[in-house]
Simulated scan of single mutants.
Amino acid sequence: MARTPDPRKREELLAAVVGYLEEHGVNDLSLAPMAEALGTSKRMLLYYFGDRQSLLEQAMNASRPKAGDIFGDVDSPQDLEIASMKLWHALTRGAQRRSVRLLLQVLSLATTDPENYGEFATTATDLMLTPITNAFRDAGFAAKDAAMRATLVVSGLRGLCQDLLISGDRARVDAAAQLMVKAAVTPA
């Protein structure tokens, strides 16, 4: 009879996998070197996560920001601004700051290797856009306007994250984030 995977061990291993991917990236990902670096075996990675694609999918799911948690109770433009800035702070200072590098790499790889990374990128974008679009609608914006404004927040913050990672100019990029968020949440 096959042994049942230990959920606690799986959770610990998943956190280690996420940390490894945040540090080393996903381009040219090979399970054997990862397993060695994590003090386990390729066989154990496959046992807990399935194949390489499944492991990557689970790591991406575990590492992405929970926009639904941040935007769940939003019902006004002021709440939208506060929630958008909370997201910005989570991405640049909080728990999500390390996973931003991983997300940006996957999104970039999706443009040149859509067969392997396109679905990850689409899912990552949708999981951010959907709750933010819903929050804009809950705050009184029409459906089409809500979707455009949510796209501005998601894509704008993502681009500013990349700028911050490259330039390190926190003051300039923080000011740009505030300006972009203000523009996105201000009714016409």
Results as ranks from 00 to 15, higher is better:
Pro131Thr: 11
Leu165His: 03
Ala142Pro: 15
Val153Ser: 01
Ala142Leu: 10
Gly156Trp: 03
Met148Val: 13
Asp138His: 11
Ala143Trp: 03
Gln162Val: 06
Ile166Leu: 15
Phe141Pro: 01
Leu152Asp: 05
Gly140Asn: 06
Leu157Pro: 02
Gly159Thr: 13
Ala150Asp: 05
Ser155Phe: 05
Ser155Lys: 12
Met128Asn: 08
Ala124Ile: 08
Met148Lys: 15
Leu160Arg: 11
Gly156Cys: 06
Thr125Asn: 10
Leu165Met: 10
Asp145Ser: 10
Thr133Val: 12
Thr133Gly: 06
Cys161His: 06
Phe141Cys: 01
Gly159Arg: 13
Leu127Arg: 10
Ala146Cys: 05
Leu160Glu: 06
Leu157Val: 03
Asp126Tyr: 00
Leu129Arg: 15
Thr133Leu: 03
Gln162Arg: 14
Ile132Met: 13
Ala146Tyr: 03
Ala139Arg: 01
Asp126Val: 02
Gly156Ala: 05
Val153Pro: 05
Leu157Thr: 04
Asp138Glu: 13
Thr123His: 12
Ala139Leu: 07
Thr123Lys: 15
Ser155Arg: 10
Ala139Asp: 02
Ala124Ser: 08
Pro131His: 08
Ile166Trp: 14
Leu152Met: 10
Met128Ser: 07
Asp145Gly: 03
Thr122His: 12
Gly156Asn: 11
Asp126Ser: 04
Phe141Gln: 03
Thr125Ser: 07
Gln162Thr: 10
Thr122Glu: 14
Thr130Gln: 10
Ile132Lys: 09
Ala146His: 01
Gly156Met: 05
Ala143Leu: 03
Asp145Asn: 04
Thr130Leu: 09
Ile132Asp: 14
Phe136His: 09
Phe136Ile: 04
Ala121Tyr: 10
Pro131Gly: 09
Ala124Thr: 12
Leu160Cys: 04
Asn134Arg: 13
Ile132Gly: 12
Thr151Ala: 07
Asp163Cys: 06
Phe136Tyr: 11
Ala147Thr: 07
Phe136Met: 00
Phe136Asp: 00
Thr130Arg: 15
Ala150Tyr: 07
Ile132Phe: 11
Ser155Cys: 08
Thr151Pro: 12
Met128Val: 11
Ala124Phe: 08
Asn134Thr: 14
